[in-house]
Amino acid sequence: SPISQSQFIPLGEILCLAISAMNSARKPVTQEALMEHLTTCFPGVPTPSQEILRHTLNTLVRERKIYPTPDGYFIVTP
């Protein structure tokens, strides 16, 4: 029987999409709110552990794709 394939999207890209959507909705993007958003909006995607989430967010900050503030994470705009 054929095996169904799913699209692979890197966690960093999913986080950027989620942060962008939450920023547009003016929702604060904390790590907890981000986990909740991922569970709700990406039900088929396994939720990352806190450690993996933190590591991926730090990587995105180093890559200058997002930036942290006391009010949460935001997408870097050119």
Rank of each mutant, 00 (worst) to 15 (best):
N23L: 02
T40F: 06
L38K: 01
G72N: 04
C41V: 09
M35Q: 08
P2C: 05
Q7H: 06
T39R: 13
D71H: 14
S4K: 05
P70W: 05
T40N: 05
P28E: 08
S4W: 04
P48C: 07
Y67Q: 11
G44D: 15
P28T: 13
L57P: 00
I75C: 13
N23K: 01
R54C: 04
V61L: 09
T56L: 14
T56W: 11
T59C: 15
F74C: 10
H37R: 05
P2D: 15
P43V: 08
Q7Y: 09
L11V: 04
P78H: 04
I9L: 14
P10I: 15
T59V: 14
I66N: 00
A21N: 15
A25Y: 03
Q31R: 08
L60K: 01
R64M: 05
R54F: 07
H37S: 03
L17E: 14
G44A: 09
P78E: 01
I3L: 10
Q31I: 08
A33K: 11
P48F: 05
Q5L: 07
L11R: 01
T56D: 08
I9V: 13
R26A: 11
L38D: 00
K65A: 05
P78M: 02
P2H: 14
G44M: 11
R26E: 11
E32F: 04
I9G: 13
C16T: 11
H37K: 04
V29K: 00
T30L: 03
P68N: 13
P68Q: 15
T77C: 14
C41W: 07
T77I: 03
Q50Y: 15
V45L: 09
L53T: 14
A18P: 00
Y73I: 03
N58C: 09
T59Y: 09
P28K: 08
S4T: 12
V45I: 14
T59W: 15
H55I: 06
S20H: 03
Q31K: 05
K27N: 05
T77E: 14
R62N: 01
M22H: 03
D71A: 12
I3A: 08
L57I: 10
Q7N: 11
I3N: 04
L57S: 00
L34H: 00
L17I: 15
Q50T: 07
V29I: 04
A25H: 12
P68D: 10
G72S: 06
H37L: 01
P2W: 06
S20K: 13
P46S: 05
I66Q: 00
Y73K: 07
I3S: 12
I52K: 10
I14L: 10
L53R: 00
D71T: 12
P70I: 13
S20P: 01
M35I: 14
I14H: 14
H55Q: 09
V61D: 04
